[in-house]
Write a protein that binds this DNA or RNA. Structure first.
Lengths: 335, 335
DNA sequence: TACGGTTTTCGAACCGGTTCGACGGAGAAA
DNA sequence: TTTCTCCGTCGAACCGGTTCGAAAACCGTA
């Protein structure tokens, strides 16, 4: 299609290898020759062929991004991870191969075995994720967002959901709330193995017990149209509750409408505190106090760790698991 | 890294070319030889190297997906295009290189000139999109979602926003509404050149005039936190208006809360009709009558057209511009 | 003038596939 | 028996880069 390095060499009157060295800078080239080469490159509009380069260098400069799209996940939040990952990758010189196959393990095998990617980022990793065995066989650097049971060989990034839960419970207890209700992710998230769901819930329950606060957890709705009824039922079931914790994006997004329709004032009648990203809050104008879920930070960190590992092969750094400390942003919806 | 075709050939006791032919089926191979080859492939766990194959065949089996992320676009809707594109591509045997660079033209040049992709899908194409000149120089098949001024050489898919507007206006007129207000996309979308914005608005205004209905258009808010106030101001300014058309996802998503807070009953006090996808309505439990914006269909069609063109190079089919006919789904929010 | 040491450039091999032309052997037709 | 086909397989060239070892050119010094 376009001009090749041989064309450049011919026009510049040098050999192909000289052009290659001028481009990579791995050997010194005289100023005059270099000039002729770059002139030729410009005149011809030469761009190195990615496939040929990948073949020779065994580096594609492409990262695989594996995400699966579960119907009980709230789609909007996922885009924040995707954007953070692609933008960070580009800044580091990598492109992103986006893989959303339903059969995650097979897809992972496909892109690693064929050498399409130098490394992979896994989103939404489950406690016992079926992609991990495949990943270990592939012998390719990988970073995850989401904490699996076995982190061997992986750079793992996730929010410290336990700490987040404790911070939220303490926050409400310090305000004097004797009874709290928690809306968790939908039940399928738990049964599928989305560890963040029970890491948050169990820590909340435990901390409440430790602090002498009554706390009851209820599953959020996977079907959005049932959210208003479910929230209503939960509130009805706990007339004494003065505080609501929401750990579910879909529920949080519609909470203003739901509470508005019931005539519940926040924080007058009910203190509300949630767990999502600032971006998410902005998109839906959610006025609640919340703990930042940091998708941007997590996605960025995962890519940076992965790229570091790729750029320093055989480096001494052990894989790291980092649980990001929660950060509470007070918007005055609790008192 | 992994085994190569030479390893397979050695184990099976044949030449490399024979293995290649067994794999591709382009020449006949005796049953017994074929069996030995596939046994070797299985035993070794061989997968062909993508870069080498791309180099030899000049096909990467990868499509570029170019999207830009504007702060005044509503993020959740974009994910539907991305999912439709990636899933369709996979079904056709292609992977997706996701490109979100801020500098779209440069990114496009990079992935085409380097031969990373066989073709590209452009999302959210502007009336006078700066990526198009680059695209024409690249001589690579392309499909777009969004209708540009010059469609030369492109397969273009978009909703027929003009027809959608006329259908909506007629629908409201037939119900007897004398005055209608329309909330359009935010002003930056117009000035940037998002043609769908004015194609819808201008057609609505024109059709209303033709039908003898009063219709006033107002810009939606780019800043979500200002949406309630803006909707309120628009309604206050038109106390006689009995119908509201919403052509803006962000506004639609919060409309239940906004109208609820104002005590406006739908359709009792106000008929509401909107333009978004069924998926979007489901995610936010929006109860309004709407015209389907069909992101799934558009994304799928664009990829299918692109793949067809790639699989039939030099085929006789002229590039096609297809404006999908609008489909109104009555949810009873107008009367 | 010959010599040693740098600096710059070249040629060839290699990465791992695909594909073209040719060749050997088997079976059919002459 | 010879000739012609057709089938199955092989070897070599090629896709477009990178990289290693060595040659060539240039410099100052003995």
């Amino acid at each position: 299609m376009g001009p090749t390095i041989a064309d450049v060499a011919r026009v510049a009157g040098v050999s192909r290898s000289t052009v290659s060295y001028a481009l990579s800078g791995k050997r010194s080239i005289s100023g005059e020759t270099r000039q002729r080469i770059f002139d030729a490159i410009r005149d011809l509009g030469f761009t190195a062929n990615a496939g040929a380069r990948a073949l020779a260098t065994r580096r594609t400069m492409v990262l695989g991004l594996l995400m699966q799209f579960e119907p009980d996940e709230f789609a909007p939040a996922m885009l924040q991870y995707v954007m953070a990952v692609t933008e960070t990758a580009r800044r580091k010189g990598y492109d992103i191969l986006l893989v959303t196959d339903h059969d995650g393990p097979a897809a992972l095998r496909r892109i690693t075995d064929s050498g399409m990617v130098d490394g992979v980022v896994l989103l939404d990793v489950l406690h016992d994720d079926p992609r991990l065995p495949v990943l270990r066989e592939a012998h390719r650097p990988a970073a995850t967002v989401g904490l699996p049971a076995d982190t061997e060989g992986l750079d793992v990034y996730d929010l410290d959901f336990g700490a987040a839960a404790r911070q939220i419970v303490d926050h409400l207890r310090d305000l004097g709330h004797p009874e709290i209700v928690l809306i968790t992710p939908p039940r399928p998230v738990f049964s599928r193995g989305g560890a963040y769901s029970w890491r948050f819930r169990d820590a909340a329950v435990e901390q409440a017990a430790r602090r002498g606060v009554r706390l009851t957890a209820h599953y959020g709705e996977a079907d959005p149209s049932r959210i208003p009824a479910t929230v209503g039922a939960v509130l009805d079931a706990h007339p004494q509750a003065t505080a609501l914790i929401v750990h579910n994006d879909a529920t949080a997004a519609m909470l203003p409408a739901v509470l508005g329709a019931r005539g519940v004032a926040v924080p007058g009648d009910l203190s509300v505190i949630s767990l999502y990203s600032a971006d998410f809050a902005r998109t839906f104008s959610l006025p609640y106090t919340f703990v930042e879920s940091a998708p941007g930070l997590l996605g960025r960190s995962a890519v940076e760790a992965l790229v570091h590992r790729l750029d320093h092969p055989g480096g001494p750094d052990r894989p790291v698991t980092r649980l990001v400390a929660p950060h509470l942003i007070d918007r005055g919806s609790t008192r």
